[in-house]
Amino acid sequence: MTTEKKYSAMTEHELRGEIANLREKARKAEQLGILNEFAVYQRKMLMAEAYLVDPATIEIGEIYRIEGDEGMFFQVDYLKGRFAWGHRLGGNLAKEALPISMLKPVKTGK
Rank of each mutant, 00 (worst) to 15 (best):
K107H: 06
T3M: 12
A26E: 11
M72P: 02
Y78S: 11
I58H: 08
K104I: 14
K107S: 14
L89I: 15
L22Q: 12
K80S: 09
N21Y: 14
Y7A: 02
Y64H: 05
F73E: 14
A50N: 05
R16G: 01
T57F: 05
A97Y: 00
L35K: 14
S8F: 00
R27P: 01
L22E: 04
S8Q: 07
K25W: 00
Y41H: 09
L103F: 08
M72A: 07
Q31K: 08
T3I: 13
T11H: 03
I60F: 04
K107Q: 13
R82K: 12
M10G: 05
V40D: 15
E96K: 12
D77P: 00
G81K: 05
N36R: 14
K44S: 11
Y78D: 07
K104Y: 14
S8N: 01
S8G: 01
A50Q: 05
F83G: 00
G81W: 02
A84E: 01
F74E: 06
E96H: 01
S8H: 01
W85K: 05
L46C: 06
A48N: 06
I100W: 02
E62H: 11
R82S: 02
M10K: 04
Q42Y: 05
A26H: 03
S101V: 05
Q75N: 12
K28M: 15
T108C: 02
L89M: 11
V106Q: 15
A97I: 04
A50F: 07
E30I: 02
N92R: 13
F38E: 15
L52D: 01
M72G: 01
F73T: 11
T3R: 09
K25P: 00
E59V: 14
R23V: 08
Y7M: 03
A9P: 00
K107M: 08
A56S: 15
N21G: 05
K44H: 06
V40G: 11
Q75M: 14
K6H: 09
P99G: 01
R65P: 03
L15V: 01
A97V: 05
L103A: 12
G109F: 03
Y64K: 06
D69P: 02
E49M: 15
